[in-house]
Design a protein around this nucleic acid. Structure first.
Length: 821
RNA sequence: GGGGGUGUGGCGGAAUGGUAGACGCAGCCGCCUCAAAAGCGGCCGGGCAAAACCCGUGUGGGUUCAAGUCCCUCCACCCCCACCA
């Protein structure tokens, strides 16, 4: 093999070979311990770039390592194929969404194969296949039966550009997460999933997920947003209405000098006085015309008096009710007690409208302020609070809650920020919601036997209104209950529905009677290592946890009721320091990169440039370094292949000299690093690949001094085993040239031997008062006395000791000797 | 405002409390070559002519025989959430 390394033909050869021999199939009956590693399934947007490559390469290295370490590895791939871009392509250039999606999938399949990733393709799924989405519908019906899927009218987020509603999780800074259009509020009748029923469990179980990044757990905690407080009501003077409010600061209750209420609150219409009716209506209308963003980013708090008065539940004082722009209709009860002295927002509002400011909390041992200039937020001691004066905030919260409860006007309460998950979309390219509306029977779920409710082809997509609603052939149906005329639901499901359970379908992708066989879930679940972007922290990852808990409650899965034991967020890939984007024209595509550098070099570069969780920067010069490495491997191995073919890489040779033991140590250190980074789940393969460099460097050194070295031949024989998960193509090619008939990827991983890692000379550091003064080359195991005797002969040490007495010696075997004087 | 995180050469980064800067990129010098590319060898934190010595992991302190690493202070930057009552 004197020829130069031709990565193009060799990589293509092995990709075909792996596929033909199906070496990556996952089975349940191997008797091995299972390991399920999964990258979040991609949306088939058209082309893969090196950012995708980093993600899939990382998962593939982990999968190949675990397989060689003796696990039965599940590593599947699929396509998250429903969604807006297909439909937008249809609107923009008349493409058929199905055709558009299928074309993209075909191209991306080709590219994924081009990367040499070892997937079990027999389990591939595509979520827009009727055989997939029928199980979406089936699961929806099970949720419906349990009261966890329901329809109601509610103020929802409406994206005027995409002409659909959005889940709360899909509104980012008041804008649509896809097109960044300002989102509007609309009252619409929509389907929801009752994720709030699982709020507490979703929160509590975050504690168990110690294999997740802390920031992701923190984000979910914040999103669920539990707060402990109390709910109580104000009577409205001269009315039967009561205004309920939620507060976490019941200790400040006596400081409430007004009630603030959201304009959308249903009580507003009932309590507003005739004189104020017009002003309130105008205020509400003005506010409604504003987008969510304009509304929530308003700095100025404004309001109008309703004209009505509330009665304070304890002091029985009469306080005004104001309709304001700063109380959220969707959180808590939509109304709050205004406590200007102890809440900055209330302070600003009261200041503007000259409402009274009553101080009720002071720091312990302090007098009330002569003039309140800003809200005092911390806990303290109560004043101006009747019988509660002198108690601490913490005591007062309990005591006041008790009193309100005795009076029957309130109680302690836990509130969550999380809302139910809105899944209706007024779009075409999604799973039809399996419900019909019958004039006689009302809302009727489609029976299982009639699934799937198929998405009709050739529906014109103009972007105006729900496309399915215009397809009369689809809409007109008969009632499953009475057989009478009925109309189908024309909304489709949020695509996060299908991605909340797809990892279970991989386990049993061709099952025609159930979405998956619970026995298969018992073997494979939970997912041992999940890999994907941090942007899904509260969308996909929270929805999936919710679904999985529902499945666990139904006993469709067993074991822990969390689907993802360990989670890893890979970092972005930049290009020369900039974010890759089509508009910048700086996207580094897979085809281009593979053609230029080869797959192995690309994989090595992506794993080498940073630890996988960090942002990495694709630079052509950096990638060049890994091409050099691949070529170096080839050149360094070439002269030894003949000899290495006769050497057993599992049998440790005896080194004859220092270069040989250095190479031997480098070989074993490289394997040890690969194993350590994998089993520790740290995955810092950048350090492993650095050790590959040292491996090949040591081999090159030996090659020049001793072309017949047996240790060098051994290093060449072992190299494919050690590098296989990282550079799978060149590894298999070398393995074959060494005379092996079976793929190296089916071999057991190389086992590092501690004996090889011990070298005959170590550097022992001599410190004086903690500063390094000399380095001794000694045999490992040199004891303290020997080391000391050598150390005090060193001129640099003598100079530092300068006749002073050595008060203390610290000796760390094979590491250092510190002399304290 | 709340939460999470990060600060190490020109750059990416390495370092179970124990030799700071492994490995690579860029750069510089040399060998090879008619020449270039590739390859091979060497240098590469700062100060000094310099082995020695001094300084050096955002800042200031502390713990320790020993701190990039542990604790506290401050500074800077990044990410997420946010009139959430």
């Amino acid at each position: 093999m004197a020829e130069a390394y031709d990565f193009r033909s060799i990589e293509a050869k092995w990709q075909k070979r792996w596929e033909d021999t199906q070496i990556f199939l996952a089975r349940e009956d191997s008797g091995r311990t299972k390991y399920y590693v999964l990258e979040m399934l991609p949306y088939p947007s058209g082309d893969l770039h090196v950012g995708h490559a980093k993600n899939y390469t990382f998962g593939d290295v982990v999968a190949r390592m675990m397989r060689m370490l003796g696990y039965e590895v599940m590593h599947p791939m699929g396509w998250d194929a429903f969604g807006l871009p297909a439909e937008n392509a249809a609107i923009a250039r008349g493409a058929d969404p199905n055709q558009w999606t299928r074309t993209n999938i075909a191209n991306m399949q080709r590219q994924v194969r081009l990367m040499g990733t070892g997937y079990d393709w027999s389990r591939e799924i595509t979520t827009c296949d009727p055989e997939y989405y029928r199980w979406n519908q089936w699961l929806f019906l099970r949720l419906y039966e349990q009261g966890l899927a329901y329809k109601r009218e509610a103020p929802v987020n409406w994206c005027p550009h995409d002409r659909t509603v959005l889940a709360n999780e899909q509104v980012i800074d008041g804008r649509c997460w896809r097109c960044e259009t300002l989102v509007e509020r609309r009252n619409l009748s929509q389907w929801f999933l009752k994720i709030t029923a699982y709020a507490q469990r979703l929160l509590d179980d975050l504690e168990k997920l110690d294999g997740w990044p802390e920031r992701t757990r923190a984000m979910q905690r914040n999103w669920i947003g539990r707060s402990e407080g109390a709910e109580f009501w104000f009577a409205v003077e001269g009315s039967q209405e009561r205004i309920s409010v939620f507060t976490t600061r019941l200790d400040t209750l006596f400081g409430a000098t007004y009630v603030a209420i959201a304009p959308e609150h249903p009580a507003v219409a009932k309590i507003v006085t005739p004189e104020q009716r017009e002003a309130v209506a105008r205020f509400a209308k003005n506010l409604q015309s504003k987008s969510e963003l304009e509304r929530t980013s308003l700095l100025e708090k404004e309001g109008v008096p309703s004209g009505a008065y509330a009665i304070h539940p304890l002091s029985h004082e009469r306080i005004p009710i104001w309709v304001t722009n700063y109380v959220l209709a969707e959180y808590g009860t939509g109304a709050v007690g205004g406590v200007p002295a102890h809440d900055q927002r209330d302070f600003e509002f009261a200041h503007k409208y000259n409402l009274p400011i009553v101080e009720v909390i002071v720091p312990p041992g302090q007098e009330p302020s002569p003039q309140v200039r800003e809200a005092y937020i911390p806990d303290g001691v109560l004043i101006n609070s009747g019988e509660f004066d002198g108690t601490t905030s913490a005591q007062a919260r309990k005591a006041i809650a008790r009193r309100l409860s005795e009076l029957g006007v309130g109680e302690e309460k836990i509130n969550y920020k999380i809302r139910d998950w809105l899944i209706s979309r007024q779009r075409y390219w999604g799973t039809p919601i399996p419900v019909v509306y019958c004039e006689r029977c009302g809302e009727v779920p489609v029976p299982d036997g009639q699934l799937p409710v198929r998405l009709p082809p050739n529906v014109p997509i103009t972007g105006e209104g729900s496309p399915l609603a215009r397809d009369e052939d689809f809409v007109k149906t008969t009632c499953p209950k009475c057989g009478g005329a009925a109309r189908r639901e024309t909304d489709t499901m949020d695509t996060f529905f299908e991605s909340s359970w797809y990892y279970l379908r991989y386990l049993d992708p061709r099952n025609t009677t159930l979405p998956w066989d619970p026995a298969k879930a018992r073997y494979w679940m939970p997912i041992d290592q999940y890999i994907g972007g941090a942007e899904h922290a509260v969308l996909h990852l929270l929805y999936s946890r919710f679904f999985y808990k529902f499945f666990a409650d139904r006993r469709w899965v067993s074991g822990p009721d969390e689907p993802f034991t360990r989670l890893f967020h890979q970092g972005l890939v930049l290009h020369e320091g900039e974010r890759m984007s089509k508009s910048r024209g700086n996207v580094v595509g897979i085809d281009e990169s593979v053609h230029q550098h080869g797959v192995d070099a690309m994989r090595l570069f992506l794993m080498y440039v940073t630890p996988p969780e960090d942002t990495s920067d694709w630079t052509d010069t950096g990638a060049t370094g890994r091409i050099r490495f691949v070529n170096r491997v080839w050149r360094a191995c070439a002269p030894y292949v003949k000899q290495a073919a006769k050497v057993d890489p599992r049998k440790l040779p005896e080194p004859k000299n220092a270069s040989e033991s250095a190479l031997l140590a480098a070989v074993h250190a490289a394997a040890k690093s690969a194993i350590d980074e994998t089993v520790s789940r740290r995955f810092h393969y950048n350090t492993t690949i650095a050790k590959f460099d040292e491996y090949v460097n040591a081999l090159t050194v030996l090659e020049q001094s001793d072309p017949n070295s047996l240790v060098a031949a051994y290093a060449v024989a072992a190299l494919p085993l050690i590098m296989a998960p990282f550079a799978p193509h060149i590894a298999d090619e070398l393995w074959e040239r060494l005379g092996h008939s079976q793929s190296v990827h089916l071999e057991k991983y190389f086992e590092p031997d501690a004996r090889a890692l011990t070298v005959d000379q170590i550097t022992l550091v001599v410190q004086v008062n903690g500063k390094v003064r000399a380095r001794l080359n000694v045999a490992p195991g040199t004891d303290e006395e020997q080391a000391y005797a050598l150390a005090i002969q060193q001129s640099t040490v003598i100079a530092q000791l300068d006749g002073k007495e050595v008060r203390k010696r610290i000796f760390v075997p094979d590491k250092l000797l510190n002399l304290v004087v």
